[in-house]
């Protein structure tokens, strides 16, 4: 479980996060939604520690992550996996080397077990054997996302963070990636946090959804609940598109 308490962050005189509280449960896909510029990425980066929040606390299963000395944080980092918006694969390495990378750094497994772990992770995200020696730049966006997910789960993390895993993907591939994230979350009992714009993800995999607006949390609930929400902020965010106007009309 990840507990976020009163996270605030400003850049210059722009206050991006104005005190966010949330509880994200284990074995669930926790989605953070909100319009562009609402602070989703800053919030996710504050949780993983790429951005230092001005105030507030993050607890990882009760452990005070934000207050920890750097040495202990480093050890805890091995329990985190992250999938970046543009995949952020190491472009100088092959597919297989990308997944091997965290294992080489942080695991003391013997070589055969390392190889088995790499094969398992790549198989789990359905990367074919024929792609292992390819340079990651040769892969399609969807394949790169899969490799990024394989790299993120290589060390068997307790926490998985994804920043817009569907951006730049077609609807069909988006659904595949979403399902993969959900499957892995359930299978390994991870606490998963996903930033997204994709309303389909909200409905498909949103066990717990948090809506951000102007740096505040304005709504939370489960994915399907969002269709029935009467909160004006939700209405303004969700029911602006033609598709969702029709959905709402059909529901009422």
């Amino acid at each position: 479980m990840i507990e976020v308490r009163g996270i605030k962050k400003s850049f210059g005189d722009q206050e991006v996060l104005k005190g966010i509280d949330m509880q994200l449960q284990r074995g669930q896909c926790n989605l953070i939604i909100g319009s562009s510029g609402s602070g989703k990425t800053v919030l996710l980066k504050s949780i993983v520690g790429l951005v230092k929040p001005d105030s507030g606390q993050v607890l990882l299963d009760g452990r005070d992550w934000t207050g920890m000395p750097e040495r202990e944080r480093k050890v805890l980092r091995q329990e985190m996996g992250m999938v970046f918006q543009a995949s952020a694969l190491f472009t100088s390495l092959t597919v297989e080397e990308n997944v091997r990378f965290p294992l080489d750094f942080f695991s003391s497994l013997p070589l055969t077990e390392k190889n088995a772990r790499i094969a398992f992770c790549l198989d789990r995200v359905r990367i074919p054997q024929s792609a292992l020696r390819k340079n990651v730049a040769e892969l399609s966006g969807g394949m790169q996302k899969r490799v990024a997910i394989a790299r993120a789960i290589a060390l068997n993390p307790k926490y998985l963070f994804c920043d817009e895993p569907n951006s730049g993907l077609d609807p069909e591939t988006s659904v595949v990636i979403d399902q993969l994230i959900q499957e892995l979350t359930r299978e390994f009992g991870m606490t998963t946090v996903v930033n997204t714009h994709d309303m389909n993800s909200v409905l498909e995999i949103g066990d717990h959804v948090v809506l951000l607006r102007h740096g505040y949390k304005v709504w939370e609930g489960s994915g399907p609940e969002i269709l029935k929400a009467t909160n004006q902020e939700v209405v303004d965010y969700v029911f602006v598109s033609a598709l969702f106007k029709r959905v709402r009309a059909a529901l009422t």
Partner: peptide
Amino acid sequence: GAMRVTEQMDALQVMGI
């Protein structure tokens, strides 16, 4: 620079490197 703008450096940092 290319590693910076494609978030490869952030990826390293998240891993604790």
